[in-house]
Design a protein around this nucleic acid. Structure first.
Lengths: 301, 301
DNA sequence: CCTCCGGATACCCTGCGGGTATGGCGATTG
DNA sequence: CAATCGCCATACCCGCAGGGTATCCGGAGG
């Protein structure tokens, strides 16, 4: 015979009530079977858990038993609760991969909203570049990905989460800063800084065609490192282009300038696999839709 | 009905074997009752734990259940084991208070020996001065105390653990260092540094009488702080007196000099309360006796 | 010495958990 | 496409673990 939760409850009741009769009352049962159960347990373990005379008190071994039993019982109580929550997707983990530019404002909002409405949901987040996100999503390493130009695949479902205008990031001493806004051609001849080209080819294409359409020429500089390396501008004739949600979040020493050109908006998309049936994922997606709606993420700003 | 450990084992078996028949086999039972138990559980929770067609697989909720169930089962397995160990004193906590001078060598040896022979025993240690140790022992805050001159009380049992000669601690540039040994009168006129007098009155008395018996006079300096403050000697005409086990353990910049006077040995005693029936305490005491015997702690060195 | 309180013992009985036989559904194969 | 096989579900039976009632016993208090 193995020790089961019932026996733990019995021992706990006797320990806490300090007597078999009171404990039996609390357990809504008669005293003799309770006494017998505990005696059987003691015989099986070969250990006395209670001194009974002159008064019922825990032995040292009893104290150890009670201590462990308490945590086990507490954990088992939560087991049922958690399982029910999990069936509705309200308990569990969702793994979200995202491109760097989502870290400024979009991702934190989503995580915060999910955490507030569903405290049992853990959102695991990790940044990466587009090719890595694609591979991870395919391999089911992530449940959902926030990206701009993930390849089209039949097994993917995608939804546009946010539309953003471009803004330029420049050194705070840059001559255009005081206007606050500028056209791309105002940057003619200056140095365009961008992230490693092979890590975000579509994005690179989007930006270079925008620059070419101005008819002007630009110097170029490709940052060798991931992340926000291309924002380390270094002088007053360099500029980078990022999504509008970065405004107010760029590194110290830099400033943002709104771009007035009539360009198609940058789209940030949520992408997940059609066959991913996780209810937690559903909840996260619904939440994201709600946030996008409330915050007006569909009108480029 | 509540979820009990048996059900957790069932779910776990089905999850790990990937089928009801194999799981039943592992559980040494027939398949139908197993299926029924799990279906009842699912009904009670109002949650499906397994997809059964086309193949038996865990649902999201099932994964959460299994995850929690694993830790609960592991913990319950340990419960019985720990309880049995505890009945022999081999699992539990013992709280040991000690005076600073035991920290050099004596206490670590005892803790290490106990940890090696009884991995389930946690030794909680705390240093303090004699009056504090006395109060804590009386109040059952500690189970055992290592001290030199605790008051005699009828409820205490005590045993001498170690006899030690005095050694002097001096700055490493002190003129007597190169001899390695000296009589107390060789320190005549120098500054005797000692811990706060009211915190170890008997020790203070022991040392001052030893100094007075030389017929010489000494300057005195009472450190205002606890701990090893009185070993912060500062010049080459100061000395402190400590128990011999401190040799090789004193702060950098200081050195020890053996004292050749024929003085009564310093006794380090274990003291505990007669009515403390903790089996863990017994084990610790037996261990300490063993270490003292093996290390020859009874002949002053 | 008696009483009373509380745990232990003796004995009964019910229902839960497990067994056997069999049905049903989906996938695989000639 | 039919037949077969694998595997889980259903139906029904049974034994015993666990709970109930009645009673005994030991120690503390008056």
């Amino acid at each position: 015979m193995a020790i089961d939760l019932r026996l733990m409850r019995y021992v706990l009741a006797v320990a806490e009530e300090g007597g078999f009769q009171r404990a039996a009352k609390r357990l809504v049962m008669a005293q003799p079977p309770l006494s017998r159960q505990i005696r059987n347990l003691e015989r099986e373990l070969g250990v006395t858990l209670f001194e009974r005379r002159p008064t019922v008190r825990l032995t040292e071994a009893g104290r150890v038993f009670v201590e462990s039993a308490r945590t086990i019982l507490a954990e088992s109580d939560r087991l049922a609760e958690r399982t029910v929550l999990a069936s509705r997707g309200e308990y569990g983990t969702i793994r979200v991969g995202y491109i760097y530019s989502a870290v400024f404002e979009t991702l934190p909002r989503l995580v915060a909203a999910t955490g507030r409405s569903h405290p049992g949901v853990t959102v695991y987040v990790r940044d990466a570049w587009t090719p890595e996100l694609d591979a991870a999503l395919l391999a089911d390493t992530y449940d959902l990905v926030l990206s701009r130009d993930l390849p089209q695949r039949p097994e993917y479902r995608r939804e546009t989460l946010r539309r953003e205008r471009l803004v330029a990031v420049v050194d705070e001493g840059h001559p255009l800063v005081r206007h606050g806004r500028a056209g791309l051609r105002d940057f003619a001849g200056q140095r365009f800084c961008h992230p490693p080209r092979h890590l975000a080819p579509d994005r690179y294409h989007f930006m270079t065609t925008a620059l070419e359409r101005t008819g002007e020429t630009f110097e170029r500089w490709e940052s060798p490192i991931h992340g926000l390396g291309h924002l380390d501008l270094g002088d007053r004739r360099s500029f980078a282009l990022v999504a509008g949600s970065a405004v107010g979040q760029v590194p110290v020493g830099t400033a943002t300038i709104a771009i007035t050109d009539d360009l198609p908006a940058l789209e940030l998309q949520m992408v997940w696999k059609r066959d991913n049936t996780s209810a937690t994922l559903e909840i996260f997606i619904d939440n994201a839709r709600g946030v996008a709606h409330r915050e007006g993420w569909n009108d480029p700003a």
